[in-house]
Design a protein around this nucleic acid. Structure first.
Lengths: 341, 341
DNA sequence: TTGTACGCGTTATCAC
DNA sequence: GTGATAACGCGTACAA
């Protein structure tokens, strides 16, 4: 707003001998003008090279059409793709997105949120795990979280339990002698815990020989590799000669495991089956395409924005009825059967 | 701005018996108040639960502190990481980012830009290749492009030529009998063309037996795979018994090539060396860690925002001197020597 | 150090 | 169908 040569409604009004009000109406309720006058104004807009100023409109009507996003990182393809899909909803809902990368630091994320609040975002989408849902709820604006702890706020999550069941059933069908789930220690608060539960329940129901191996895998590639190398040694020696079905935390880890096996045996041995999670690009680009459980990221994103828009619209009514209880939507994952099963 | 219970400077002023101006000064020039009075106001802010409103401030002083970003996609790790690094500059410069995903459609991107202009962004970062730099320059706001055609606008690019040279020299040092560069047909306008040029010049200077193979690789995994399968057949038969050094467009493609070789021969044959580009995660996570030329994405991003901020600051001066010529910054890439060379 | 008065560009309200 | 006027919340001469 370079303090000069900004053509405003006033200029248009003078030029056309209408009032500012009529110019405003031309934009917000054109049908209330005669076609003639619409033409006059639209010509003037071109002639004077008018550029609309939504900041002024915000101040006047209170609608920023901003949604804030806090995303934890871009390292996992899952987050990038989720952001991609969220941003793409602009075409449907018209909301603009102010994006911050949370650095897993509480104070930093609080600062980001304050900044977003200062810009009068109408709603907030949180993917980061740093702040508790009760703190988020205190912000008193529409919020949707995705795939994180969500007790006090609306959320959209993958049906992780179903994902666990799908993976487990696939391995079961292949007549494995032992089913193994490898994962990082996971809090039961998190939606992702459902995968573990789904695995466990399915194994118990079908009375399958199974085991869960917890290892800290949320680190760099080399650490993950050495962790899984140890796991593999243990599995190799404990379940020799048995057909092993492994359901592992995600595709990145599945790929590490796969590579360890292929480098050890020259190929994926017949007695090893692997299922990952996420359907990330690595699952198709691996040396052997990896079976995986895929989140429907497009749907998750769309439902998230959709759920947020509902809340935002409700708030704009003269008599808003705030939700009694947070709404939690669930999206079913899809099993991709590839060459590791 | 829920049209109610918004505490404003007016409320603070009444409560503290100061004027609005003094309240404003408390925020923008606190030193001009006595410490006493600062305390009085800061207490009042807490008591009345004041929330700042930057939208109003924008309208008053014209500074949105918004930067618009147009990114083409999130599929390549390069773009995700670049966005990550750009967003991270908030900590340094304080600018907020409005992000749009360009869908390679001109009209769509023009709409995005219009929307950004309506929100009075102070500058624009363009990663997408859809619109020409001359069209961008016509927007008359500070612009920086990254790694795309940039004749008429400021830009930050990797020294692609140097990257090509580095990759080629590495292969040359390994005493390859034939150096092969595989790439998609690339316009000389694009910075990425430098990689091809760097390869070619180095080969010529060092009088190395070389060849450039162009194939359309900007497509889905399966297509890339079958394209490279054909290339491999040709190379296999044409250069039998020779040591082949392959420099290929990027790490994703390098990985496909590597997997084809490993699946064919059980491992990477001694007469094949591979160098990719991007230092993307796949290069370390591949079945055999891939040598690659890495962009310094953090530096690229920082320089881009930095260059933009300079232009934006210049514009705020009473007598702005617009740049005579666009500035083009260049960042040197880094060679990662791994197991494929 | 503090206050007055006005401007930023649009929308909302009420009147005609 | 159109217009006058007052918001919206803050910044900034200019004055005191």
């Amino acid at each position: 707003m370079g303090k000069k040569n900004n053509v405003t409604f006033n200029d248009i009004a003078k030029y056309t001998n209408f009032s500012k009000t009529t110019i405003s109406r031309y934009f917000n309720n054109p049908d209330s003008l005669t076609l003639e006058n619409q033409k006059i104004i639209s010509d003037a807009l071109v002639k004077l090279n008018y550029k609309e100023n939504k900041v002024a409109r915000i101040l006047a009507n209170g609608k920023t059409e901003f949604i804030g996003i806090i995303i934890p990182n871009f390292y996992h393809h899952y987050y990038s793709e989720m952001l991609n899909q969220i941003l793409s909803t602009y075409e449907t809902f018209g909301y603009k997105f102010l994006v911050f990368v949370g650095n897993e630091n509480e104070e930093t994320e609080r600062r980001y949120i304050q900044e977003l609040m200062a810009y009068k975002i109408e709603g907030l989408i949180v993917l980061s795990h740093t702040l508790s849902s009760s703190e988020l709820a205190d912000l008193q604006i529409p919020i949707v979280t995705i795939e994180r702890e969500d007790e006090h706020v609306c959320s959209v999550n993958t049906d992780n339990y179903m994902g666990g069941v799908q993976a487990t059933c696939l391995l079961a069908k292949r007549n494995c002698d032992i089913l193994i789930h490898i994962n990082s220690p996971t809090s039961p608060d998190l939606p992702a815990y459902g995968r573990i539960q789904g695995f466990q329940d399915t194994c118990k129901e079908q009375q399958l020989n199974h085991r869960i191996i917890y290892r800290e895998l949320e680190s760099q590639h080399e650490q993950v590799k050495s962790q899984l190398e140890n796991v593999l040694k243990e599995v190799d020696s404990n379940y020799q000669g048995m057909k092993k079905g492994i359901f592992i935390s995600n595709d990145t880890h599945a790929n590490v495991l796969l590579n360890l096996l292929v480098r050890k045996y020259g190929t994926l041995p017949d007695d090893y089956l692997i299922v990952g999670f996420d359907n990330s690009p690595i699952s198709t680009e691996a040396i052997i395409p990896i079976s995986t459980v895929g989140q429907q990221i497009d749907k998750l994103a769309f439902e998230a924005v959709s759920l947020l828009v509902e809340q935002m619209n409700e708030r704009k009514k003269r008599k808003p009825k705030p939700l009694k209880e947070p709404i939690h939507k669930v999206i079913t994952p899809v099993l991709f059967h590839r060459d590791t099963t």
